[in-house]
């Protein structure tokens, strides 16, 4: 079993630094964009898109999802996103429509 741990190829430090730089730039972007966007209604979607991209970087590089081979690792994040999305949508089927029909 120990052998399996050794077979891992460590990621290059350089890759991590590039990812980190990307993350910092995206943080700057989300800040700048938040101040400038009109109409405000779109701002949240832009903010969430940027946050999603940043999470994608963290998940794939820092958390090594990109290099995992088993299918189950590929499924986990889409699964949690789908579950969360369904929970939000079904809750909003109430929150957004309350008092509309009545």
């Amino acid at each position: 079993m120990e052998n399996r741990e050794v077979k891992i190829h460590p990621v290059k430090y350089r890759t991590y630094v590039f990812v980190w730089m990307g993350l910092v730039i995206l943080t700057g972007l989300t800040y700048t964009v938040a101040v400038g966007i009109h109409p405000a209604g779109w701002a949240i979607f832009v903010a969430l898109a940027i946050a999603g991209t940043k999470s994608g970087l963290v998940l794939n590089y820092f958390m090594h999802l990109k290099s995992e081979r088993l299918v189950i690792f590929k499924v986990i994040i889409p699964l949690v996103m789908a579950v969360f999305l369904v929970f939000i949508l079904l809750t909003f089927s109430d929150v957004a429509f309350r008092g509309v029909v009545k």
């Binding site: 089927s93 109430d94 929150v95 957004a96 429509f97 309350r98 008092g99 509309v100 029909v101 009545k102």
Partner: peptide, 13 residues
Amino acid sequence: GHHMFVSGQSDFA
């Protein structure tokens, strides 16, 4: 949501 039909949630829900 079927536990909440009389709770005041939206008719759509």
